[in-house]
C-alpha cells in the first residue's frame, strides 16, 4: 500500500518536472539543471559515505575527472555524449579506486587522508597539466547532440539531466535493495561480524568506492555539457565540503535523503545571497564581499548541527512529519 502510494507520488513528481520548463522562467531551469547534476553526485557520495561508511573528502575532484574526460573525449576522440558520459564515469571510478585502494584495506582515518590527497593532487593536475587541460583557462565543450539535434540551451540539457537523474536514482535504489547494498550496510555497521558471516568486506568497499566515484564522474560529465566549459576552479575543496554537507543534511544512508540534501544545499546559497543582499541593502553596506565566507560558515554549521542533533538528517524529519500527518488523518 505504502509502496504503491510512493510510486504514485514519484510519477506525479516526474510529470511535474517534465512540465517544469513550460511553467517557470529560464533562470530556474538553469538552476534545476545544476540541482539535477548535484543529485547524481550526492547519490555517489551517499553510497560511499552514507551506506558503506567510507568518508571521502575528494568527491569534487572525481567530479572534475568526469568533466575533463568528457571535454577531452569530445575534442580528441570525437565521442558522442552517450559514450562520453559512461566513459567519464569509468575514468572517475578508476581514479577513485587508484587513490582509495591502498587504504581500503586499513580501517579508519587512512582513507580520509587518501581522498583528501586525491582532492589536492587532482586539482593540481587540472591546473598544471597545461598541455591537456589548458590550465586555469580550462576547456570549452560543445553541447551534447541526440540524432543531430543539439541540446544547446538550458531546457534541452535539462531533459537529458532529468532522464539521467531518474535512471541513476532507480539504479541506486535497486543496488541498495540488493545483496550488494546489504553488504554495504554490513560493512558500515559491523565489519568484523560481516566478514565472519562471509561478506568479503574489502571487495564491497572497493565496489562502493568505484560505484560512488562512477556517479561522481557521470555528474561531472553532465556538468561539462551543461556549462559548456570546464576549468579547475569548479572542483575545489569547497565543492567537496558542499557534497559532504548535502549527504549529512539529507540523511546518511538514505536515497531520499541524498535527494533532499542536494535540493536543500543547492537552494541554500541562493537564499543566503537573497537574504544577505536584502539585509545589506537595508543597512546600506556591500555584503557581496562576505558571501563566500558566509556560505562556508553555514555549510560548517549545518554539518556540525545535523551530526549532533539529527544524524539521520532531513530524511528522518520528513518521515516523522509524514507519520504525524498520517496518524492524524487516520484518527479522523
Amino acid at each position: 500500500m505504502a509502496g504503491n502510494r510512493n510510486i504514485l507520488w514519484a510519477i506525479l513528481l516526474i510529470l511535474a518536472l517534465i512540465a517544469l520548463p513550460a511553467l517557470v522562467p529560464r533562470y530556474w531551469i538553469y538552476f534545476a539543471g545544476i540541482l539535477g547534476i548535484n543529485i547524481i553526485a550526492v547519490h555517489g557520495l551517499n553510497i560511499m559515505t552514507g551506506y558503506t561508511g567510507l568518508l571521502s573528502l575528494g568527491h569534487a575532484a572525481f567530479v572534475g575527472v568526469g568533466a575533463y574526460t568528457v571535454a577531452l573525449a569530445q575534442s580528441k576522440l570525437g565521442l558522442p555524449f552517450y559514450l562520453a558520459i559512461p566513459l567519464a564515469g569509468v575514468a572517475a571510478a578508476i581514479m577513485g579506486v587508484g587513490f582509495g585502494l591502498p587504504s581500503l584495506r586499513i580501517r579508519g582515518l587512512y582513507l580520509v587522508i587518501a581522498t583528501l590527497a586525491a582532492q589536492f593532487i587532482l586539482n593540481f593536475v587540472f591546473v598544471h597539466w597545461q598541455k591537456v587541460t589548458n590550465g586555469d583557462a580550462g576547456l570549452t565543450v560543445q553541447p551534447a547532440t541526440i540524432f543531430g539535434y543539439p541540446l544547446n540551451n538550458e531546457t534541452r540539457a535539462y531533459y537529458l539531466i532529468l532522464v539521467c537523474d531518474v535512471a541513476f536514482t532507480l539504479f541506486a535504489l535497486n543496488v541498495i535493495r540488493s545483496r550488494v547494498g546489504r553488504a554495504f550496510v554490513a560493512v558500515r555497521e559491523r565489519d568484523r561480524t560481516a566478514e565472519v558471516l562471509g561478506v568479503r568486506i574489502v571487495w564491497y568497499k572497493f565496489v562502493a568506492f568505484a560505484l560512488g566515484s562512477f556517479y561522481a564522474g557521470v555528474a561531472g560529465g553532465l556538468l561539462a555539457y551543461f556549462n559548456q566549459f570546464v576549468n579547475p576552479e569548479q572542483f575545489g575543496l569547497l565543492l567537496s565540503v558542499f557534497f559532504l554537507s548535502a549527504v549529512i543534511v539529507g540523511g546518511m544512508g538514505s536515497i531520499l535523503g541524498a535527494i533532499l540534501g542536494a535540493v536543500f544545499m543547492t537552494l541554500l546559497p541562493e537564499f543566503l545571497r537573497g537574504g544577505a543582499l536584502a539585509v545589506g541593502s537595508s543597512f546600506g553596506f556591500d555584503i557581496s564581499l562576505i558571501l563566500v565566507p558566509l556560505r562556508e560558515t553555514v555549510f560548517g554549521l549545518l554539518i556540525v548541527g545535523f551530526l549532533i542533533l539529527e544524524p539521520r538528517g532531513l530524511a528522518q524529519l520528513w518521515k516523522r512529519a509524514q507519520q504525524k500527518f498520517l496518524t492524524i488523518s487516520t484518527v479522523k
Binding site: V241, S245, P293, L294, R295, E296, T297, V298, F299, G300, L301, L302, I303, V304, L307
Partner: peptide, 8 residues
Amino acid sequence: GIGSIIRG
C-alpha cells in the same frame, strides 16, 4: 565542519 565554520 568546525574548520569550515572558523574559515568562514
